[in-house]
């Protein structure tokens, strides 16, 4: 009898857990819809240079009329410089999604590390870290992000830093709460009694238990980061390069160009709807994932 090796056993177990999780996820329609939307949007964003011509974003080469309503050539009309709103919306997805993902990864990474450390090491480390976390949690992150992006060079990097450095506290609290729950479990005590040190407990027990939650939180946070990006850009803190538009900078142009008063709905609606759809898709995915992980939310 050739028994499978322990490693193979462990991987088989992970595979089975993943498959079970996927089945539960797939049983929720809204989660699937969200995931489908995301796949389509991300594909479009990646393929934008292939299916369209970036030259259309160049103000000097724009061919359309000034804030012209939709017609055959420009399905979503044009902006003040005569660029196609459809093209702008498509290209904007690249910056918006990029900022959303990277800023979220940054903030979740900070939050996870701080959360686990604050929960695992009690007393002073915890008190100090939570004091800092509470501070960042309480003060308005937009205000902080404004301050940060004011003093730094305008651009995508600044926006990412501003969002990432101000939005981690909720992840930290969440991870800390989860770590505390896990660390209260007797199997941690058992592991310590077996001789396991800090590193062993954190990597073998805490991290694997916290990661799914971190993953859910990441999914939910990308949406918030995209909204934050649009807000900062709207306030004039985004990337000024017209060749790298985002949905936020588009809305800022629409605002500055008085699209509201001009009744140029074709200029106003697409970027906002795009934001709403992407954020909603992330939220739907995230909540479906959450339901997979928390059976209490699942029923009904």
């Amino acid at each position: 009898m050739t028994a499978p090796s322990p490693r193979a056993l462990a991987w088989r177990r992970r595979g089975a857990a993943f498959a079970a999780g996927w089945r539960q996820f797939a049983s929720q329609r809204s989660g699937l819809v969200g995931l489908g939307l995301l796949v389509v949007i991300v594909l479009l964003a990646i393929l934008a240079p292939v299916i369209t011509d970036q030259g259309g974003l160049d103000v000097t080469e724009a061919t359309g009329g000034t804030m012209a309503p939709p017609d055959g050539e420009y399905p979503l009309g044009t902006d003040r410089s005569g660029r196609s709103v459809l093209l702008l919306t498509l290209w904007s997805s690249r910056v918006s999604l990029l900022v959303g993902f990277v800023a979220t990864l940054l903030s979740i990474a900070i939050g996870t590390v701080i959360g686990i450390l604050a929960a695992h090491y009690g007393r002073w480390v915890s008190a100090g870290l939570m004091r800092v976390t509470d501070f960042f949690l309480v003060i308005p992150s937009l205000v902080l992000a404004i301050a940060l992006s004011t003093v730094m060079e305008r651009g995508i990097g600044t926006i990412i830093l501003a969002i990432g450095l101000t939005s981690w506290p909720s992840a930290a609290r969440l991870v800390r709460a989860q770590t505390l729950t896990i660390e209260a479990r007797p199997y941690i005590e058992r592991s310590k009694a077996l001789g396991g040190g800090h590193l062993h407990v954190i990597t073998k027990h805490v991290l694997p238990a916290v990661l799914p939650l971190v993953f859910v939180n990441t999914t939910l946070a990308v949406g918030s980061a995209i909204v934050a990006e649009s807000t900062l850009s709207f306030l004039g803190l985004g990337d000024p390069d017209p060749m790298r538009p985002s949905w936020g900078t588009m809305l800022r142009s629409a605002w500055l160009d008085s699209a509201v008063l001009a009744g140029a709905w074709w200029y106003l609606l697409p970027p906002g709807i795009a934001i709403a759809i992407v954020v909603l898709a992330f939220t739907m995915c995230g909540r479906a994932l959450e339901a997979v992980l928390n059976p209490r939310l699942r029923e009904g």
Binding site: V227, L251, V260, L268, G272, I275, A276
Partner: peptide
């Protein structure tokens, strides 16, 4: 999921 300012602009319009 909606940016505040966009909602405001929509309401205005």
């Amino acid at each position: 999921s909606t940016p505040t300012f966009w909602l405001g602009m929509l309401l205005l319009a």
